[in-house]
Amino acid sequence: MEYKVISELLEKYWEGETSLEEEATLREFFSSSHANLPPELLEAAPLFQYLHIESEKQLSWPEEETKAPAAKVVKLSPFRHWMKYAAILLMAVGIGYTFQHRGERQATGDFAYQSDLDNPKNALEETKKALKLLAKNLNKGTNQMQKISYFNEATEMIEGKN
């Protein structure tokens, strides 16, 4: 009796006129084995078994299985790494101190010298001093040259005598 119903459904199936429910019925019917199937059912059995297996097959997206558990959030106390902050502070103070002092030194040294030259009187004094120094050294040189010229005169006189 049941075979007849299935047989009719199967005929409808081959004609492409079955509904989704009827197709599910067919798959369900063929998923278990039956004895003494009439030939028209026997020929369709492998197809429906295959369809049944395929529709039951679980193909899962791999990442969903191996999803890492969400990382636990650990709240850090801001004073936990106090040594870091202390070191940064110390370095900042050190660098600041260095810069400040270098600035001061430059201000007292270079700036004072600069201001001396800005004044024309002072500039004149400085130039005079420099020129005096130059003249003094030059005179040293000419004194030596004078000695050489005496020597020259002496040699000339001797040559003249000869």
């Binding site: 081959w14 004609e15 492409g16 020929e43 369709a44």
Partner: peptide
């Protein structure tokens, strides 16, 4: 879709009959 499904099933059926 219906026509193609019908043809597809028919083709499968022929193959299955051969197999049988």
């Amino acid at each position: 879709v219906k026509v193609n499904l019908h043809r597809a099933r028919k083709a499968v059926r022929e193959k299955l009959q051969n197999l049988q």
